[in-house]
Amino acid sequence: MLTARDPVLMDLDGVFVPLITPFDADGGVAVDALAGLAKQVLDDGAAGLVALGTTGEPGSLTEEERAAVVTALVEVCRGRDVPLVVGASTEAAVRALPAEVSAAMALVPPFTRPGAAGVLAHLRAVAAASPVPLIVYHVPQRTGQELPPAALRAIAEIPGVVGVKYATGRIDADAAAFLTDLPEHFTALCGDDALIAPMLALGARGAVAASAHLATADFARLVRDGAGDAALVARLVAVAGAVFAEPNPTVLKAVLHAQGRIPTPSVRLPLLPAAAESRDAVLAVLSAL
């Protein structure tokens, strides 16, 4: 498994699955189900895993539960020799990462909206403290912080930063300006499941896609072969649209439970369970693949 800080050793091509955190009937973390889910998506073509991303509901987990999630996925990734990325956005969080973790995913500071200069200063401090490379997570819909291409290019030049999960929700002139002018050592990963194809066309080399819990092999093929198969792209855009019909990961968990892959569809507050209609819409799209 990749653990070195040297950017040339960080292979971020392909689909990374940001795993849900399954809960058992008593409300605790279903560690065995998590490990089984991780193995299945890797068997089906995922290039690596992300732990404690937004899809994993990390804010609702206790410190002990977060540690249990990371420990379980470290074991899976060690056995498969694939990278494990863990959500960690502060100096303290990255210092606490186990040695086997390949990279940290650091969120652009949310809520405070510190401006580009503040974002850069924060990420420099986190990168300097981190024993592993950073992938910056840029998702302005959640953080409230927009960043122009010049700021993103400055982030790409921070020592120890090797990539970005780019999830602005749109493909516009700023996206094109940034994605078509990436430093050689730096990888852009699509963070919007429905926009993987156009982002690949512009210069992204992979994706962090929650929808790839489902139809994993198809998402892996899309990234591997590019966006040339229009029918495949259309099918996967339909999957993504149905999965995100309600707040993530509520629909995804309902579908995984219906497939028998996790013991319950439970989420924790402030999330509420997905409607049966949303679950059934995803299952109908999957049946048409």
Rank of each mutant, 00 (worst) to 15 (best):
Arg80Val: 02
Ile20Leu: 15
Pro98Ser: 13
Arg224Ala: 14
Leu52Pro: 02
Ala212Pro: 05
Ile20Ala: 13
Arg235Met: 09
Arg113Gln: 15
Gly14His: 13
Gln145Cys: 13
Val76Lys: 04
Gly169Cys: 04
Ser60Asp: 04
Leu37Ala: 05
Thr90Gln: 09
Val8Ser: 15
Ala128Tyr: 07
Pro109Ser: 10
Glu75Cys: 11
Glu277Cys: 08
Val74Gly: 11
Pro140Leu: 00
Val223Asp: 03
Ala188Asn: 01
Leu61Met: 06
Pro131Leu: 03
Ala46Gly: 06
Asp43Ile: 05
Ala258Met: 10
Leu200Ser: 00
Ala67His: 11
Leu286Thr: 01
Pro18Trp: 01
Val162Asn: 02
Ala234Lys: 10
Ala103Gln: 11
Gly45Ile: 02
Leu256Glu: 10
Ala188Val: 02
Gly36Glu: 06
Val85Pro: 00
Gly36Tyr: 06
Val208Lys: 03
Gly203Leu: 03
Pro131Ser: 00
Ala88Tyr: 02
Ala35Glu: 08
Thr21Met: 04
Ala4Lys: 10
Thr143Asn: 04
Leu12Val: 04
Ala274Cys: 15
His213Trp: 08
Thr55Asn: 05
Ala25Leu: 14
Ala47Ser: 12
Val239Lys: 04
Pro18Arg: 01
Ala242Glu: 02
Pro159Trp: 09
Val74Phe: 06
Ala215Cys: 04
Ala275Leu: 14
Ala234Trp: 09
Ala99Leu: 12
Ala254Trp: 06
Gln259Pro: 00
Asp24Gly: 13
Pro58His: 09
Arg5Ile: 10
Thr21Asn: 14
Ala25His: 15
Asp24Cys: 14
Glu184Asn: 07
Leu84Pro: 05
Ala209Gly: 07
Ala106Trp: 00
Leu289Val: 11
Arg66Pro: 05
Leu42Lys: 07
Val94Trp: 03
Ala51Pro: 00
Glu65Tyr: 06
Gly27Asp: 01
Val119Leu: 11
Gly28Val: 12
Val223Gly: 03
Ala173Pro: 03
Leu12Gly: 00
Glu57Lys: 11
Pro133Ser: 00
Ala210Met: 05
Val70Asn: 01
Gly87Lys: 00
Ala242Trp: 10
Leu61Phe: 14
Ile262Phe: 11
Cys77Ser: 10
Ala177Asn: 10
Asp26Pro: 07
Leu271Arg: 06
Leu97Ala: 09
Val119Lys: 04
Leu107Cys: 14
Ala258Tyr: 11
Arg221Cys: 08
Arg95Pro: 13
Asp24Lys: 14
Gly169Thr: 06
Phe16Cys: 04
Val208Phe: 03
Pro247Val: 08
Ala231Thr: 11
Val255Cys: 04
Ala104Cys: 02
